[in-house]
Design a protein around this nucleic acid. Sequence first.
DNA 1: GGACCCATGTAAATAGTTACATGATTGC
DNA 2: GCAATCATGTAACTATTTACATGGGTCC
Lengths: 178, 178
Amino acid sequence: MSLQNTILGFLQLESTTGYMLKKRIEGSVGSFWTVTQSQIYRELKALETAKLVKVKVVPQDGKPSQKVYTITALGKESFQQWLAKPMEPFVLRHPLLLRFVFAAELHPERLDTLLDDYSQKLTQTLSEYEERLNAVKIFSLARSKRESTIWKLSIENGITWCKAELSWIEKARKELSQ
Amino acid sequence: MSLQNTILGFLQLESTTGYMLKKRIEGSVGSFWTVTQSQIYRELKALETAKLVKVKVVPQDGKPSQKVYTITALGKESFQQWLAKPMEPFVLRHPLLLRFVFAAELHPERLDTLLDDYSQKLTQTLSEYEERLNAVKIFSLARSKRESTIWKLSIENGITWCKAELSWIEKARKELSQ
DNA sequence: GGACCCATGTAAATAGTTACATGATTGC
DNA sequence: GCAATCATGTAACTATTTACATGGGTCC
């Protein structure tokens, strides 16, 4: 459901192909939602069957033809409903933490290495987010001041989370080395 | 894989039934990993086939008999390997944020309500974590000082995350109300 | 009598990942 | 010639969720 609506959300910005949708999803919400190419094509098919999108095959000279997807009126309606409906409670699955609780069974140095790796990845992710905040390109696509505020805030959520996680790791490593 | 190893991790603490495993997983790692009853029984079957656990049917007078699962030597070995192996990169799927990026399409008051609901849930989750930190019962199961430090830290991770998320929501609501 | 806990499971649907397969164009 | 990008898709597998189904015991 989430992925179908993500696709609808992107098609609301612009009609495009499955290939481009994947690129765009990865480059934006990719930091808090994953998507594979097979999923995109499967969900596009489902959306088409449900008449939420329509396709136009665009032949190109030389190149293989494109399938350009467009959101329908029904699609827009269904998307609005999804946007407005109350959030169900959710759990953020955290594979590192899942291992961490069992880590008493692990050599202390090994655990420290795992935490260190994780903190390095986080530091990198953090700087990517910070770069993205300064990327004018992203915000130029926004259709309103409010939309660009929202996009900025969603990147800031990632930044806040990275910093929280990094400060936790620091604390954890300190306590575990004693 | 994660779930199978979670089961092994719990069986390492104590041999028990599928039913109890579900209770225990929910009551501990439940805040960052979900599990359903059908999954438990399926994974137990798979673990049994792989000889990582063994079963003993314990008949009870009156009550239906239990299937008590015990980790095998092979299971312990496989669990250790999982614990020590390097973490693959992962994405924390965040359904609220996924909606949030599209929220320019939403009535401002509706968005504010969604954020408010979320912050209320978080506040409740936060106080549950804080209670859990003081629950002597949990920590009495720890087999070492280090294990109880690890468990405490994992709860603190949740607390850190809740606080980060709450401060982000406050900021977001402020900026969006202007 | 009804709700809830203990305890087991199956069936079916939905979601997500990995691997395979094709074919043109562009740049090194 | 080889790798990368654009662009499509299928097949098979793994993971996850929801719903159905059974049956005893306890508590009110």
